[in-house]
Computed example of a mutant assay.
Amino acid sequence: MGKILAITNQKGGVGKTTSCVNLAASLAATRRKVLLIDLDPQGNATMGCGVDKHDLELSVYDVLVHRTPAQDVIVAAEEAGIAVLPSNGDLTAAEVELLEQVDSESSLRQALASIRDEYDFILVDCPPSLNMLTVNALVAADGVIIPMQCEYYALEGLAALMETVSGIAATKNPGLQIEGLLRTMYDPRNSLTVEVSRQLIGHFGNKVYRTVIPRNVRLAEAPSHGLPVMKYDKHSRGAVAYLALAGELIRRQEAGKVRKTPEPETAMR
C-alpha cells in the first residue's frame, strides 16, 4: 500500500512546493513509483513537473468536487519520472463547494482509496494555509512532512500547524503522525539558523531529518524550466540534498517495517 505524505506549512516561501517536486523526482530515481498531488490552486507543483496547468481538461478540482475517478485525471510527468494529479485556478472554488458536501474533509481520502496500491509514495503539495484543502490532505495522509526555514517566525507557525495535525488525528485520522521536519534554505553561516536548528532538534529529536536543504541557485532556477533540479542539474547541491532526503525517507520506512518501536536516531546538528 502506498504511503501518503502531506507536505505542508501554513507559512509561505519555505520551500514546500520545491520540496514536494524534488522529493517526488528523487524517490522516482530510486525506482519507486510516485504520485504527486497538487492541492494548491496556484498550480506551481504542476508546472514544476513540466505539466502545463493552462492546458488541462481535468484537474484535481474535478476529483474532489465532481468525484471524477483519480485515474482519469492523473497525467504522466515524463521528465520527472512521476505521475501527477494536477491543479490549476479551478481549485480556488473547491473549498466553498466542498463545504456543501457530506463528509467533505474525506473527499481526497475516498478518491485515493482505489489507486493508492498502485504507488509506493503519494506526495501531496498543500496550499500555504490551513484551509479545507489542507484538511483534506491531512485526513488522507499517513504522515506529514513540514518544510521550514530556521528562523524565529517559523517556530511560531509551527505551533499552530502542530495543533491542527493533533486535532485531525484526534477526530478524523487516528493514524496521522508527523513524519519529519525538513530544514530548508539552510545556511550554516547564519547564527540564527544554527540556533533555531538546535532548538528543533532539542524539541523534536529524530523527527528532524538529518538531511538539510541548502540555499542553491540551481534549485531556484529549475522550476522555470519545468524540471526537478535533478533533471536540470544533477550535480548541484540542491539535487544531491534531495536525493539524500529520499534515501533517508526510504531508510526510515524500511526500519519502521522491521521493528515496532523505532529506536531514536542520532540527529545531525
Rank of each mutant, 00 (worst) to 15 (best):
R237N: 13
E100K: 15
R210G: 14
V14A: 04
L192R: 07
R259A: 12
E118Y: 07
A159D: 14
D187F: 10
L23D: 02
L91A: 01
Q149P: 01
R269Q: 13
K234P: 11
D103A: 15
H66P: 00
A137L: 07
A111D: 06
N216D: 15
L64M: 10
L23H: 06
Y119F: 15
D233P: 06
P228E: 12
D187C: 06
A70G: 12
Q101L: 14
D72A: 12
G13K: 06
L227Q: 11
S87N: 05
G50Q: 08
I213N: 02
Q110A: 11
S107M: 15
L27Y: 10
A25N: 06
A255Q: 12
E254Y: 05
E254N: 12
A111S: 15
Q199D: 04
Q101R: 13
S59T: 12
A267G: 07
M185S: 01
T17F: 03
Y242E: 03
A159E: 15
M185C: 09
V96N: 01
A220W: 09
F204L: 08
L112V: 09
S87R: 06
G81H: 12
T266P: 01
T8Q: 00
T8G: 00
N216W: 07
D90F: 02
G157E: 01
L176V: 07
Q253H: 11
E179C: 05
A111N: 08
D233I: 04
H235D: 13
V208T: 00
Q110F: 11
G175K: 15
A45I: 08
A246E: 07
E156F: 13
L138Q: 05
L5E: 02
E263I: 08
I146R: 00
D55F: 04
L56M: 07
Y232C: 11
P262T: 10
L85G: 07
L182Y: 01
P147G: 01
A93Y: 00
T68Q: 15
M148W: 00
V60T: 14
E221H: 10
E179T: 04
V135F: 06
V139C: 07
V73R: 03
G50W: 09
Y242A: 02
E79H: 11
A169E: 13
T68H: 11
L192D: 07
I178Q: 01
I250P: 03
N136R: 04
V51A: 03
M268Y: 09
E254L: 14
S106C: 08
I178V: 15
D125G: 04
T211S: 11
D72W: 05
V258A: 12
Q42G: 09
P128Q: 05
D55S: 13
L176D: 02
L27A: 10
T18N: 09
